[in-house]
């Protein structure tokens, strides 16, 4: 920042990911202020002791004074989402958009439900943990804010300046004439046992609570299963357009041929490098669709962090992508 060169470089960099992250950090505090104002406005209609915790049966089992409840709601809404912001600040700029989205969505979710359940309570009525009149608007707003911040904070890849960037001579290639059309199809999928285990772990508690008294949680369980099935496997295609990683209607990653610097094989450890399985972003901005540890296709991109996909025969996929990328004019 002290030298002119550094200043011009930072001025040229895309600042949107950082701006989105800052905006995400403000969502919680802004909603907290709004929530406190609302609570203050309806304070006369609220019971003296408000419910702050609900048992598995859906009935409140712990109560507190209004001040205490409002402070708890404020602290959670304003501070919990900051976890995502702090992670985003430490990580690669290309990870900031998604994390800003998550932080914003969590802030809306917490603010809506905590202040919603607080301000909906009336003396003599059984307090609801998730008042229906607040639940839907909260979820919709959380989705809108999350997707909006994510998209705003997306790091635009630097423009290609037109200089040819040949694939390195040592990169694996297919030995085929230039007239041959080549393509590669494969898939990355969580093992069925793994999916079953995750479903059991994630859904069993929800089912128990749903049966005990909150039937609407069944919807959440169905949603989680659908999400797992959707994100548990992906089709991987390499063709004249580049690399595509997709699940049904979702495109996880698309690397155009002219953005491919080099494709190679690598070894991936999902838990250590990505902190989990499925579609992931690493600390250094690496995008990964990782469903197991071991051999993976690594696509180095021009001006962006690499994309990693766990496929069998990664060497063959890399060779096809390098062959196609070498042919570009």
């Amino acid at each position: 920042m002290t030298t002119p060169a550094a200043t011009s470089a930072s001025a040229g960099a895309d600042r949107r990911p950082t701006h989105a992250l800052v905006a995400s950090a403000l969502v919680g505090p802004v909603l907290t202020v709004a929530g406190l104002l609302l609570t203050y406005a309806v304070r006369d209609r609220l019971p003296e002791r408000v419910a702050v915790h609900w048992g598995t049966s859906g009935r409140p089992d712990r109560f507190a004074s209004l001040t205490e409840a409002a402070v708890t709601a404020s602290v959670m809404t304003a501070l919990l989402p900051l976890v995502f912001v702090v992670i985003g600040a430490a990580w690669h700029p290309s990870a900031r958009g998604p994390l800003a989205g998550f932080g914003g969505a969590v802030a809306v979710f917490l603010g809506g439900l905590l202040f919603g359940s607080l301000t909906s309570q009336r003396p003599g009525e059984v307090a609801q943990a998730f008042p229906v009149s607040w639940l839907l608007p909260t979820l919709v707003l959380a989705a809108v804010v999350g997707v909006g911040l994510w998209r705003w904070g997306r790091l635009r890849p630097p423009a290609l300046d037109g200089t040819p960037r040949p694939v390195p001579a040592g990169a694996v290639r297919l030995d085929v004439p230039d007239t041959t059309r080549v393509a590669w199809t494969g898939h990355a999928a969580l093992p069925d046992v793994g999916i079953l285990l995750v479903v059991l772990l994630a859904v069993t508690p929800l089912l128990v609570v749903a049966v005990l008294g909150m039937p609407w949680l069944l919807l959440l369980a169905v949603g989680i299963v659908a999400l797992l099935v959707l994100t548990g496997s992906a089709r991987v295609v390499v063709d004249a357009e580049g690399l595509r990683v997709t699940s049904l209607f979702l495109t996880w990653s698309r690397v155009p041929l002219d953005r491919v610097a080099e494709a190679r094989t690598g070894t991936v450890s999902p838990l250590r490098e990505f902190g989990g399985y499925g579609w992931r972003i690493g600390k250094d901005g690496t995008r990964g669709f990782v469903t197991r540890s071991g051999e993976a296709l690594v696509v180095e991109r021009i001006g962006e962090p690499p994309v990693v996909v766990t496929v069998d025969d990664a060497a063959e996929a890399a060779a096809v992508l390098n062959t196609l990328a070498s042919r570009r004019a």
């Binding site: 004439p177 007239t179 041959t180 059309r181 080549v182 393509a183 590669w184 199809t185």
Partner: peptide, 9 residues
């Protein structure tokens, strides 16, 4: 899996 065709063949 690898797919390859040569239209000139």
């Amino acid at each position: 899996m690898l797919w390859q065709v040569d239209p000139t063949s």
